[in-house]
Amino acid sequence: MAISAGLLTPRMVLAAWPKAAFEATNVDDAVKGLFGSSSLAGSEQIKIKAPDIAENGAVVPITITTDISGAESISVIAEKNAQPLAASFVLGAGTEGYVSTRIKMGKTASVIAVVKAGGKLYSTGKEVKVTIGGCGG
C-alpha cells in the first residue's frame, strides 16, 4: 500500500510478517528475529494460563495477561517446536495486556511469553506436558 507513513502513527502501519522470526529454529533466533535482541528480563508481571498437561498437542489453549505498563506486544513461543515462535500480537494504544488463543505443541516444553514495553523485553514461562504431539502426523 502506498500510504505516506507521515500520516499515520507507527502503531497503525502494518508491519510486514516477520519471516525470519517465524522460520527460526530456536528461541534465541526467534526473539532476535522479532526484536533485534534476545535479552529477556524475567517478570512476575506476566501470567500464562495454560494446561499443566495437554492431552492433545494440536490444541493447547494459552492465555497471557500482563500488567506491565505500556506493553506494546505479546509474543508466544513454544520452546521445543521445530519453529518455536507461534504468534506475536501487536497491541493498539488502548488494547489491554491480554490475549487468548490456541497453539500446537510438538512435545512437552515451556511456553514462553515475551512482552515488549518501553524498548525492553520481559518474559516468563510455563511448562506444558504434551501427551500426543500436535505438529507432525
Binding site: 492465555t63 519453529q83 515462535l85 493498539g92 488502548g94 488494547t95 491480554y98 490475549v99 487468548s100 490456541r102
Partner: peptide
C-alpha cells in the same frame, strides 16, 4: 479505523484459530 490488534501468526496456531483480546474506548 484504528488497529486495536495486529497479530502475526505462524503455522503453530491451531486449526480453526481462536483469538480473544480486550481494548478500551
Amino acid at each position: 479505523g484504528n488497529a486495536v490488534m495486529t497479530a502475526h501468526w505462524g503455522a503453530a496456531i491451531s486449526k480453526n484459530p481462536y483469538l480473544s483480546f480486550r481494548f478500551s474506548g
